[in-house]
Amino acid sequence: MKNTACPPKGSEPLMSTSRHRWQGLIYLMPALLVITMAVGYPIVHLFEMAFGQTNSFGIITGNAGFKNFSGLFASGLMRVMLNTVIWTAGILVPTIIISLALAYAVSLPLKGQSFFRTIIIIPWAIPLTIVAILGDMAFNSTYGQVNTLLLQLHLISHPIGWLATARTSFPVMMILAIWVSIPFTTLTLLSGIQAVPGEILEASAIDGAKGFYRFRKIILPQITNALQLVVLINLAYIFNSFPIIWIMTQGGPASTSSTITIFVYQLAFTLGQFGQAGAAALLAFIILMGLGVAYVKVYRRTEGNLL
């Protein structure tokens, strides 16, 4: 998508001599140091665990080659992976769609705009574990407020056992996860929409573009950078999300609602199999990395990208 109405970009790098290219790394150092301290060694250790023999506290005692990986399939990895795919896609796609709608809505000059913007922040302001605990209470099959409300409104005649089977518990937990993912996604997309140059919008109005057509044809192509960022960040968070499932079902009944993070956590801390846990975590990372790279490749062609 070419657009000529954009303000001039500074994308042409200023310093290009090779000395300067190396000198620039100085500015990266502080951030690199903090990130290395936080995750540098843990990532190395993850590799060591994945290919090593470990005791029940995650201390490496020997070499295991690929044994940890082959052991995973016997432990039920495939079903967990399938669940994780459903979980990730089923949260990511609705989150993006709903957030796009909300972001566009609060970008318009509406009455109560700042009220709505504050409302949108709420799910993010409540600590995630509290959201999970709240969900556990609200969807309880007997005293849960959701059943109480539905009964009072005569929408159901018997209380529903929301968390009794994965058929209902999985969608319920996904709805909660969508709810908590919306604020960050909406805010980031909103900032993208706010930055769409006015001239483009004006011109489109003259052309008679309206409603959904205007949104899809004029606004959407202008916010690809923001969209790319929220897709990548959400992809990682949703794939790795832990508290909601752990608190509400612990992956049950009979690990039918388990995802890869629950699987890894149980391997490590319930079964003491840190080697297998490391292998599963590494596998999950590789899959996520693959998805991320594929996604970025698809969007490479759009202009103005950082990558």
Partner: peptide, 18 residues
């Protein structure tokens, strides 16, 4: 109770106590 697979101990205790 109905929905046994949704019953944690804490949840059941609340039901019993009511």
């Amino acid at each position: 109770e109905p929905n046994v697979t949704a019953s944690t101990r804490a949840g059941l205790e609340t039901q019993f106590s009511s």
